[in-house]
Amino acid sequence: MRALTLMLVFLFCSVDSTSAQQLENIEKIGDFHEGLMAVSKNNSWGFIDSNGTLVIDFRKDIAATPEQSPIFSNGLCLIKEERENIFYYGYINTKGETLIPTEYIVATAFEHGFARVIKPYKTEVIGTNVLGKNIVSYSYHELIITTTNKMAMHIRGPHNLLYYKLKSQQDIPVIHSKFISSHLILVREDNDKFSILKIE
C-alpha cells in the first residue's frame, strides 16, 4: 500500500512538472486585462494567461508605448507594421489572428466596442515632378470603428497629409476625440472648442 502511494505521488509530481511552463529573461510585464497579460523580451511582446501559459508567442508587431504595455480590450490588441518608414496599425484577436488589417496611421485600444483611428486616403494626382512621376495628394480622416472594422462615426477630416514628413516621423496626426461614456465622444475642434457626439 505504501509503495502504491509513493508511486502515485511520483506520477503526480512528474505530470505536474512536465505540464508547467517556465518563462525566463522577461524584461517587462503589463497588467492582466480580459484574462491575458503582456510580457516582453528581446523587444518582442507575447501574452500569458492566468496559469502562466504563453498563449500568444513573442512577436515584433505587437504595439506598445513607453507609457502603455499592450492589452486586449474587447477581444482585440493593437499591432503595427512598418511600410516605407511609416507605421500602420491594425488589430489581432486572442488567437493571434489579424482581424483588422494594418491600414491606420494612428489607432487606440478598443473601448466600449469602439476604437478611435486615423485613416489616410490618396485623394488625387495634382501633377508630375521633374522625373515625370505623379505627384499625389493625400488626406486623413479621424474615425470611430467597430470591432468588425466598420465605420461607426466620422469625427474629423479631410485634412491634408504630407507623406514625406510622415515618413520621417514628423507631423503625425493627433487624435482629437476621447470617450466620456460608453456612447458619448468628446471632440476638440480646430478652434479649441469642444463638441459632444453620440454614437447611435
Rank of each mutant, 00 (worst) to 15 (best):
H176E: 04
A152P: 03
E34P: 06
T108H: 05
K80I: 09
N74Y: 09
I185H: 01
F32C: 02
K41S: 15
L4H: 04
C13M: 07
S168P: 02
R156A: 00
S181K: 05
F10H: 03
H112D: 10
M37Y: 14
S137I: 01
Y121S: 03
T147D: 06
F194N: 13
Q68N: 09
I48F: 09
K122V: 05
L184P: 00
Q170D: 13
K198F: 05
H141V: 09
D31K: 05
C77R: 02
F72P: 08
H183W: 10
S182M: 04
T123V: 14
D16P: 00
L23Y: 10
Q21S: 15
I62H: 08
T123K: 12
A64F: 09
H159W: 03
T98H: 09
N129Y: 08
I135C: 13
S181Q: 12
K165P: 02
G46R: 00
L143I: 00
Y88E: 12
S195A: 14
Y140N: 06
Y163N: 09
Q22H: 07
R83P: 04
T65F: 08
E103I: 15
K165W: 12
P158T: 14
D171F: 13
D31A: 04
P158F: 08
Y91A: 01
T98I: 04
S40Y: 13
E142H: 00
T123D: 13
H112V: 04
L131M: 03
K150H: 06
L99S: 13
Q170H: 13
L162P: 03
V174D: 14
S40N: 05
Q170P: 03
I92N: 07
L6R: 13
Q170T: 04
V187K: 00
T18E: 08
D171P: 01
S139K: 08
K198D: 11
R59V: 00
N191P: 12
G90K: 02
F32Y: 04
M1H: 09
K198Q: 07
I105P: 10
L197S: 10
F114M: 05
D57C: 02
P101G: 10
P66V: 06
P101D: 13
P70Y: 15
Y104R: 00
M37I: 14
M37W: 06
P120E: 15
E97C: 02
D190L: 01
E103A: 02
L78F: 10
M7I: 14
N93T: 00
S50W: 02
L184T: 06
T147H: 05
H154N: 12
I175T: 01
Y164D: 15
I126M: 07
N43H: 07
H159D: 12
R116M: 15
N85C: 04
N134P: 03
F10Q: 10
I175H: 02
Y89V: 00
S181V: 09
L197Y: 12
D171M: 14
T5N: 10
D57W: 00
D16S: 11
I185W: 00
N160V: 01
K28G: 09
I56Y: 12
I172Y: 02
L36E: 11
S177H: 00
P66A: 12
I180N: 08
H176R: 04
G75F: 01
L166H: 11
A63M: 06
G46A: 04
K60I: 01
H176I: 00
Y138S: 13
V39C: 13
D49V: 01
V55S: 14
A38D: 06
V130H: 03
T94R: 12
Y138V: 01
M151K: 04
E124D: 11
Q170Y: 10
